[in-house]
Amino acid sequence: MKIRKMVAVSAAVGVALACVGFGSSAYAEPVSNSYSLVGSDTLQDSANAIINGTNASGGFLRVTSSNTTLGNFDAFGSTAIQAKPGGPFFGRPSGSGAGVTALRASITGATYSGNAAVPAKAITGQVDIARSSSGPGANANTSGLLAYVPYARDAVGFAYKGGNASWATLTAAQLKAIYECTTTEIDGIAVTPRIPQNGSGTRSFFLSAIGVTTLGSCVNDTGNTTPENDATVLGANQIIPFSAANWISQANGVAGLNTTTAAGVAFGSAIAGQAAFTGSAPNLVPNSTYYSDTKFGRDTYLVVEYARINTADPKYDAGLARLVNPTVANSLTSFGTIGTSVGNVKKKFGFLAPSTTTITRAFATL
C-alpha cells in the first residue's frame, strides 16, 4: 500500500526522474546513483517530495547532490529493494529501527535480512541515510559512531474508528490502561487497541510516551507487520498510534495517498484541551502548542555514519555532509520558511522546525 504513495507524488508534480534506473515498473522505485535513504514511514512522503521534486511550496524544488539524484525507498512495498546500481536486492527496511539496522549493516558489512521472505545478505555501502521518527534512546553515546541529525518536529496522537465524542481526546493514563488491557471500553463502548509493526519509530515513541513496557494480550497485532500511519487498517471501535504530520499531509492531499477519508475514522488528541492541528482539510495546520509538548511532541531525524560528516575523519564525505547540514540552504535537514525552501515543503507535510539542530551521537559499537 505505501509504495503507491511515492508513485502518486511523482505523478502529481510531473517529475521526470532523469538518470534514475527502476528495478520494476510495477513499483517504480529508483536505484540511487548517489545516496540512498531507507527507514521511517513517517518521513518518507516529505522526503519523496524533496528528493523527487515538488511544487508543494509554490515553486519547484528538488534536492540533489552535485546534480546526481538520491534514492528514497518507502517503508512498505515490494519485499526487496535494490538501492545502488549493480547492488544486491535486500529486504526492504520497514520503519525507523529497521532503517538504522540496515545502515549499520551497510557500514560494517554484516548481513541484513529485513524480512523473512528475503535471505540475509551483505549490503555493504548500500544505505547512506536512515530516516528515523524516534531518537536513539538508550543507544545515545557521546562517542557514538552514528549521528542523529534533526529533520523536523512531529507529534503523535491516535487514529480511531467508531466510538463517540469522548474518544476524541484520551489522556496518557487512559491510553496506558487501554494498551495494557486493564481498560477494555471507553464510555461504554468496547475498544480494541492496534499497534504498528515492530521497528516502527511511532510505535516505540507512543508506547514510551504512555508508559507501556509490556503490551496487554488484547492488543491483537503484537509483533505483527501492521503498517503505521494507515487509517484503513482500522476496524470498528479500534485505535492505533498515528503521526500528526502524516495525518495532515494525507488530509491536505500532498502525500499522494489519503487514508484519512476511510469511512468513520478520525484523529484523536492525547493532550486534554489541545488539538494536534487546526483548520479543515485540505488546509490543516499543525498546532505548535501540541507539537511542543514534552510527552507527545517529537523531533525526527536523518541518521548517518558520524565519520562521514566529520571533516577530521579519513572517511569524510563532503557530499553527504552537505545533504544533512542544517546550515546549508535546502539541504535535507534545513528548515528555511521563506519561498521555495525545504522547510516550507516540510510544513506542507505537517512538520514544524525541530526543537534543536544539535546532532546526537549514538551506538558506541555497530
Rank of each mutant, 00 (worst) to 15 (best):
T214D: 14
T184P: 13
P193I: 04
S208M: 11
G211M: 03
D187H: 03
T182L: 10
Y179H: 11
T183W: 14
Y179D: 05
S200M: 03
T213C: 15
R194H: 13
G201H: 12
G199R: 07
I189R: 06
C181S: 08
T183I: 05
S208R: 08
S208W: 11
N220C: 01
T214P: 11
G188Y: 14
E180C: 05
Y179L: 02
G211L: 08
S217R: 04
F205G: 06
V219A: 04
D221G: 05
G188N: 09
N220R: 01
S204N: 14
R203G: 01
T222C: 02
S204C: 10
S200T: 00
L207S: 12
G223W: 09
T192I: 00
G223Q: 03
A190W: 10
G211W: 13
V191G: 07
F206A: 02
L215R: 01
D221E: 06
I186N: 11
T213I: 04
G223I: 00
T184D: 15
S217C: 07
P193Y: 12
V212R: 04
I189C: 06
C181G: 10
I210D: 14
S208D: 15
A177S: 15
P193H: 06
P196K: 01
T184E: 13
I186E: 10
R203S: 08
F206G: 08
D187K: 00
R203P: 07
E180M: 08
T214K: 12
Q197I: 01
I195G: 10
S217F: 10
R194P: 12
T182E: 15
L215S: 08
I195C: 13
T222P: 09
N198M: 07
A190H: 06
I186K: 00
G211V: 01
R194N: 10
T222K: 05
L207G: 13
L215D: 07
G223C: 02
T222Y: 12
V212K: 04
L207D: 12
F206T: 00
G188M: 05
I195N: 13
P196C: 03
I210R: 15
N220G: 02
G223R: 00
R203L: 07
E185F: 12
N198D: 14
I195W: 12
